[in-house]
Design a protein around this nucleic acid. Sequence first.
DNA 1: TCATTTTTGAGACACGTGCATCAAAAATAT
DNA 2: ATATTTTTGATGCACGTGTCTCAAAAATGA
Lengths: 340, 340
Amino acid sequence: MARPTTKDLARVAGVSRATVDRVLNGRDGVKKNTVDKVNAAIRQLGFERNLSAANLAKGRTYRFVFVLPESGDQFLEEILRHIREAGNVFAAEMVWASVQHVDGNDPHAISTFLSSLSRQDTDGVAIMAPESPQVRDAITRLQDRGLRALPFISNQALSENHCVGIDNRSAGRTAATLMGRFIRAQKGQILVIAESMRSRDSIERRYGFDEVINARFPHLTPLPSLETYGSAARTRQVLQAAVARNPDVVGAYILSSEARIPLDVLEDMTFSERLVSVAHERTPCTEASLLSGRLDAVITQDPGHLVRSAIRRLRALCDNRNTLNSQEKIRVEILLPTNL
Amino acid sequence: MARPTTKDLARVAGVSRATVDRVLNGRDGVKKNTVDKVNAAIRQLGFERNLSAANLAKGRTYRFVFVLPESGDQFLEEILRHIREAGNVFAAEMVWASVQHVDGNDPHAISTFLSSLSRQDTDGVAIMAPESPQVRDAITRLQDRGLRALPFISNQALSENHCVGIDNRSAGRTAATLMGRFIRAQKGQILVIAESMRSRDSIERRYGFDEVINARFPHLTPLPSLETYGSAARTRQVLQAAVARNPDVVGAYILSSEARIPLDVLEDMTFSERLVSVAHERTPCTEASLLSGRLDAVITQDPGHLVRSAIRRLRALCDNRNTLNSQEKIRVEILLPTNL
DNA sequence: TCATTTTTGAGACACGTGCATCAAAAATAT
DNA sequence: ATATTTTTGATGCACGTGTCTCAAAAATGA
């Protein structure tokens, strides 16, 4: 019943605890034959290292940095809140999570910041930044210096560590399914509104969206993406232009994480029939809009889950452990007024 | 930077480590004044007990039992799989999770089993069983003996420990929203199919479903619940009778966690137009049905999350800690063919 | 005041692992 | 054969907390 300890291992393998330690911690200078004996004992006893004891002995702490853009985005606010919250919870497990803001549009700034990190003060980094060669190189150098890096939400093409976040193509496909089924009109156009189409996330969402609309709802026509660049004036302008060109707009898909501006602008405009609107990310704004009926559905990813998953995965990377895939898979969630 | 230890506490509070220990672990025989001094030091230093060290010192293990019905239900299979999986993950944190099957329809058997548990071999129990006075009493006695109990998935009216699981009324409301918006017919009836309507879960789902259909989709009529009792023959019989009485059936809501039988039966029947069907719980059967188009949506709760949440909450109960509410809230998830 | 009780302190050991050091044993080279 | 290198064992301390014991100090009662 009691868990076997390294002492038991030593006894069963017929070696000393010192040798068990050498094998467990991968030190060299141990004959292959001896290594095998110890491993056999590990299997035989079902030995598992007592993490509490190990961490205590090592005085191990995990110092993680979240590198985030500087925006005042509501979704990002949520992320920040959960980082603080998780900081408290994981404190008992010796995890320190801090946040560093850098201009998301300045690859040079990101790269410079990443270069400033060292093992002296940091064990791992979760990076939310658009993909760029500079950033990619900085991440590689980070890893060469022994730090662990993880792309966070915004997709980075890192070889193995796939991103903490949803499959954006699947998110776009889901938005399309809801949109297609909610719209009752026989035909019409759908506005697609993004803050910018330069990010990989937006592109993937758009791709998934078109895929499903074209295949399953051919009576609907998704219009070319409208970019707001975060400006209300510009949003109003491009939206009005698009609606003028397309008399039968029946839906609006807001695919960037800041839905406030497009929603406000849409509110002021008139359409022949009530628009079906779908947006991304749960924020105070999208929640309120769902309840008031301004939005019909919200596709989201749980920010708390994102943060905790990033921390767990960074820690696993530090310990060279595997994570539980089913726990770390971030789900494409659908919010309706009824399941907030 | 380094975390304060009990030694630091003792120094700052001007007492001995023994006294700090007495305060931290709530032993008596300490003057109120001294307690206050220690608590002040705790606040001043922001002391947090090192859980690793504490657990190591106590040799604490957490032995939890999941009490589950004996069914061969696919959803239950998933739950079992995740209990085994979680067992591996939590092993490093000294958590042992075992499973005990009892006949879910026999309150006496459940009560007898619960009475057989003692602190000698068990620290906490997660109970999935229909509510009944006998079971409720057994749970109370369990708690009197110092064990921790938690209602699991199936709703138990335990005073404080609210159930690990979704809000079933919200789930029913969500099913209704999707159903109402997916159905294009001007009017029609909706089949509501349950294994049994005796369980609190079914009742709550049904209640939420009717609520939304009546309020938002008055052109649709939800029919009285049909009970299958798990029998294919009976299912066929009651379904055919219901359809004979109602010529305009346009939707089917399967609200129990086993969707296989109703789906198979529905498949064989003919309707004037394609049914919109919504079921509960992600299982191999519902997944396949979504992809094949037999089902339009599935309302589900993540079984892995359920299991891990139950374990975390039981452990928190044992340690008299609070859990992170945002992490333990089980979401009403919506599955479409596009976000599996 | 002295006897009694309550409160506090000092100290030791335990938990399981990590990480040293140094000597002993075994294997290999000469 | 001996000298050298490689491999192993023995042992001790550390991590932070929990849990003892025993004695000292302080507070309370008479």
